[in-house]
Design a protein around this nucleic acid. Structure first.
Lengths: 119, 119
DNA sequence: CTAGAACCTGACACCAATGTCAGAATCAAG
DNA sequence: CTTGATTCTGACATTGGTGTCAGGTTCTAG
């Protein structure tokens, strides 16, 4: 599929998709004329990338991580190096803290919302 | 307490604390010489602010939200306006989506980490 | 062939919190 | 009083993903 369709299907701007490619997170075939042609698996990959961004990973880490992920395209997934595993373990801990923070913030919001409702 | 101690106790830089004040999120008495003097409740407040930042709220929303929060200083908490409640409800939904994303990302990381461990 | 839609590259701008630095003033202990 | 630690203000830089625009090329339906 073309970049426009991928953008629509993922909700990610074309700008960002091109950026992902430049960072090495996303690849695409090219038509003879130079237009990008994406495989079906790109949809899942883009969504994964977005999730990882939302989790606070920088593109560099994502680049290292992606080849180790079991992807929908069934490609042979690489095994993470010890260094990468250490990094990811740290990221995992950070994500855990993030989730805890978010739950607290949600509770805070709920308190305020509830207080306003019953007034 | 002074800004340095508050920074150490919260893990937030002095720079950020001054920024919070300028944005109207944090207040402080002043010594005759102009140095900031914080109450004990400032510690909790700063931590809350950080959590809310982590939850993706901008400082403007936080400013509106803070007076409605039941604070440790026991100040009379204001009641949120309907408009604010609507905003916060939207934020709450966003936070829910964020948490779901984070859990997925954490699972992704776990898969990669586990795959590397047993190899 | 042609017109309009879609795509290409490259460059500049933005956001919002934070880092950092400089130069001056204040504070607290000896 | 002195001195070293702390704080003050203000300004500029950074970050990293994204928005946006310009000028040109490619694609595709009629």
């Amino acid at each position: 599929m073309r970049i426009g369709q991928l953008a629509r299907r993922t909700g990610v701007s074309e700008r960002s998709l091109r950026y992902y490619e430049k960072q090495g997170m996303l690849s695409a075939e090219r038509t003879p004329g130079g237009h990008r042609e994406y495989s079906e698996a790109a949809v899942d990959r883009v969504i994964r990338i977005q999730e990882l961004f939302a989790a606070g990973l920088c593109s560099e880490k994502i680049v290292q991580l992606l080849p180790c992920m079991r992807d929908t395209d069934g490609g042979p997934s690489a095994v993470a190096t010890p260094k990468l595993v250490a990094d990811l373990t740290a990221e995992r801990a950070r994500i855990d803290r993030m989730i805890a923070d978010l739950v607290r913030s949600r509770d805070t919001l709920d308190e305020v919302i509830d207080a306003a409702q019953l007034s």
